[in-house]
Design a protein around this nucleic acid. Structure first.
Lengths: 345, 345
DNA sequence: CACCGATGTGGGAGCGCTCCCACCACGGCA
DNA sequence: TGCCGTGGTGGGAGCGCTCCCACATCGGTG
């Protein structure tokens, strides 16, 4: 299986041995130059570098990996059902961050889509089989066995997001609470009297944080809580639509809504339009994620943006440090979020 | 650089040699079983498979690659400036297709973002350095040197899209002409009298095809061409906005617009709203790509969808065939597109 | 002036596979 | 009975690196 053995006219690449010969030195010395060892004299280094350039030598990855007992590659694992993630600028820029940081370290990025739990177990196996040096996880759900499997096998890994407040697995996350607070503060500053919220899926920690932020900011601003202003959604558009009607039924006079996602806000916007309310005239709207939808809604949606590219970079740096055996500063890193103001509020 | 040598408690994985010993056979036999060679007796095969299962043996990728002179990996190259691509369902599902097909062949997917032309040359070098067996290219522009570089180096590659009508490089593309024709036909069938179009970037072949399709369908339906109904955009929202005003200035009575992309349609929609025209009441609108924006526009946008997942699969199959040295049926493969009808038309 | 540590350097061993040649047992054939 | 194929099998060689030990070589030191 896999791939046929023979390939047409692909000439052999020069080997380290040939570089050594050309530079008039030993293999070991060339290896040292390539790996930036300080134990090489300048004269020798220059000679070797010249030979490398002359021959157009590129180290053979597999040979390196085999001899060095490493892979020079890390895997990014995306749960298959989540491939919609790809359709988010959020994800695109995480990848950009990861990719940039890996390129600097000359490490390759393997993209893995895994659908079922079984398949994820199989992945853990593979990862253990010296195929990758570490793993980056995105969109990890509570019941996902992968993080623990990786930990058991001693495979360095970092995840994006948290599964709970006391997440012990190494992670990088955005400041959901802070983002929610900024959103609510913004709405209050714009003069809103009754700020409602539509939550995300209750079993997701990010949703919980965004709700916590909502409450926290109300408290900080001396506004009384009103459970009638809280409706539960599930991050989907349909959920936002239903929740909006629920809110309008309970508190027809509400004049601002903080939604746990842009999709939710899109649903809410639809319900508002149907019920004859204008945005932002009658009701101000704020979303979360700053996705493509936000920019193209009518009116464009104010939304909370996470520093996604930086999150990607941070995850990667944390992973590389872990791989190198450096002690982690803490289990996780929380990066600040930012409110992007548009016409909906 | 790269990665530190030592890693905490990662125990050694069993080797093929150990499997052989356990099964009471030679290394060669185990290798044959793993690679599905027919030259193994059933008795032996069963014994070896048992040993593999017992030991939880997973072949060491790097060793395989080194000994077999292949990588069991292909690279997907995305031009860095194009990372917005990630933010399209289009791209997400191409990746899904690629990933599915590769998983079946047990080949890994490397994701490479390359920004500059220089960097792409460097990539060609790397690719030649036995790092990958083949390359998948997306969003290739006319002046990109990468395809030729790969061809020169004899590295199997397939690209998504074409650079011209007589593209000689192996490729898989969607039927842009057919999609455009379907869109225009749909508008005519809905009773439109004056169907306008906003084109994409003129230097892109896909844009040209969509325009050709527009003309072709008008001709087929016996409608006279009117250059006043054609405005040039650049696939962007802003371009769509400007082009729409241009069209309205020239032909105020137009009642349908076929846009070369959803983003363009979003811009056009904005211009239409500003000028007091309703969609689809006064003007019907159709986009291209069926992106997230299309579903979330108000009203939801009718758009042309490409069979993206299938395109990813087809690209991968073509690449694997090329790697295996199978003769290609032709330079390229064009897959049919489909019109997704929504409320905007 | 012998001794020593630092600093460079060469090259053997070996990473875990695949490839391939040699070999072994058979049975069928002359 | 001897011979040759043929399906199975074992294991040597070698892929291109890294690791590490051994060996210079060169100033200092006592």
């Amino acid at each position: 299986m896999a791939i046929a053995r023979h390939r047409a006219g692909r000439e052999r690449r020069p080997t380290l041995e040939q570089v050594a010969e050309r530079a008039g030195v030993g293999r070991g010395t060339v290896s040292r130059v390539i790996n930036g060892s300080p134990r090489v004299s300048d004269r020798t280094r220059v000679a070797v570098e010249a030979a490398i350039a002359d021959l157009g030598y590129v180290p053979h990855r597999a040979a390196r990996a085999l001899a060095g007992n490493r892979a020079d590659a890390v895997a990014l694992v995306v749960p298959e059902p989540e491939t919609r993630l790809f359709a988010e600028p959020y994800f695109a820029s995480i990848i950009r961050g990861v990719s940039t940081e890996l390129a600097e370290a000359d490490i390759q990025l393997l993209l893995t889509l895994s659908s079922t739990a079984t398949e994820r177990e199989r992945f853990a196996q593979y990862a253990a089989g010296n195929r990758v040096d570490g793993v980056l996880l995105v969109s990890v759900h509570g019941e996902d066995p992968l993080p623990e499997l990786l930990a058991e096998n001693g495979i360095p890994a970092v995840m994006n997001g948290r599964r709970s407040a006391d997440e012990s697995f190494p992670h990088v996350d955005g400041d959901n609470v802070g983002g929610a607070r900024a959103a609510v503060r913004h709405l209050l500053e714009r003069g809103a009297d009754a700020v409602a919220t539509i939550t995300g899926s209750r079993d997701m920690y990010a949703a919980q944080c965004r709700l916590d932020g909502y409450y926290a900011e109300l408290a900080a601003s001396g506004v009384d809580e009103d459970e009638g202003l809280v409706a539960h959604g599930d991050f989907s558009e349909e959920g936002g639509y239903r929740a909006m009607y629920e809110l309008l039924g309970r508190r027809p006079g509400l004049d601002a809504v903080f939604c746990a996602s842009d999709l939710t806000a899109a649903g809410a916007r639809r319900a508002l339009r149907e019920s004859g309310r204008s945005v932002p005239g009658d009701v101000s709207l704020v979303g979360f994620d700053d996705s493509a939808i936000a920019r193209h809604m009518d009116p464009p949606l104010t939304s909370v943006r996470q520093p996604t590219e930086e999150m990607g970079r941070a995850m990667t740096r944390a992973l590389l440090a872990e791989i190198a055996g450096e002690p982690a500063a803490g289990p996780g890193l929380i990066l600040p979020t930012e409110l992007v103001r548009r016409a909906s509020s």
